Simulated assay, not measured.
Amino acid sequence: MVKVDRNGSELRVVLTGRQTLAEAEGTRDQLMAALLTPEMSSLVLDCTSVSDLDVSFLQLLLAARKMGQARSIAVSLSAPAAGPLADTLARAGLARPGDGGKGWFDPFWAGGQ
């Protein structure tokens, strides 16, 4: 499930529940629509309520970030990756689990851009 809230030039996309290949097309469409919103300078992705995900979801997040960069939109996570998101990142080789918060190979996963 995807919920979108706007506050001025910031758009917050709340992603919840299952985010696997089966849901990827719908999630992609929602993220791309969010990135095409006029007069937006920041997109915050809230993944804290995602309960099940696979590598296709990671690809969608990275694609949204790349599209945001191309459109001069700052794309970030609302909080450092934790729970299922952190577990999937580790399984995909994009993080070192148990490294005291320093295990992110890309600052994006720690809530950066």
Rank of each mutant, 00 (worst) to 15 (best):
S56D: 01
S56L: 04
S56G: 10
S56R: 12
S56C: 08
S56K: 11
F57K: 08
F57C: 15
F57R: 09
F57L: 10
F57V: 09
L58A: 09
L58N: 05
L58I: 15
L58K: 14
Q59F: 13
Q59E: 05
Q59N: 12
Q59V: 15
Q59K: 13
Q59P: 04
Q59D: 05
L60E: 02
L60V: 12
L60Y: 06
L60A: 05
L61K: 07
L61I: 05
L61Y: 06
L61S: 08
L61P: 02
L61F: 09
L61C: 04
L61Q: 03
L61W: 09
L62W: 13
L62V: 11
A63S: 13
A63E: 09
A63R: 15
A63Q: 14
A63I: 11
A63L: 15
A63G: 13
A63P: 06
A64H: 04
R65E: 00
R65I: 02
R65A: 01
R65Q: 03
R65M: 02
K66N: 13
M67C: 10
M67P: 00
M67F: 10
M67Q: 12
G68A: 03
G68R: 07
G68T: 04
Q69V: 13
Q69A: 12
Q69F: 12
A70Y: 09
A70V: 10
A70H: 13
A70S: 15
A70W: 07
A70T: 14
R71E: 00
R71H: 11
R71I: 04
R71N: 08
R71K: 14
S72N: 13
S72K: 13
S72D: 13
S72P: 03
I73Y: 02
I73S: 04
I73N: 02
I73D: 00
I73L: 02
I73K: 07
I73E: 00
A74M: 11
A74T: 15
A74P: 02
A74Y: 08
V75Y: 01
V75C: 00
V75P: 00
S76Y: 01
S76K: 12
S76H: 10
L77C: 00
L77K: 04
L77M: 03
L77D: 02
L77G: 02
S78N: 06
S78H: 06
S78F: 00
S78E: 00
S78G: 15
A79E: 12
A79S: 13
A79N: 05
A79Y: 06
P80V: 09
P80A: 11
P80Y: 01
P80G: 08
P80M: 03
P80S: 03
A81W: 03
A81V: 05
A82Y: 03
A82R: 08
A82T: 06
A82Q: 09
A82G: 08
A82I: 04
G83Q: 00
G83R: 08
G83M: 01
G83P: 00
G83I: 05
P84A: 11
P84N: 03
P84T: 06
P84E: 02
P84M: 05
P84G: 03
P84H: 10
P84C: 11
P84Y: 03
L85M: 11
L85W: 04
L85H: 06
A86H: 07
D87A: 13
D87C: 08
D87F: 07
D87N: 07
D87Y: 10
T88D: 02
T88S: 14
T88L: 07
T88V: 15
T88I: 14
T88Y: 04
T88W: 02
L89Q: 07
L89C: 07
A90C: 12
A90Q: 04
A90G: 09
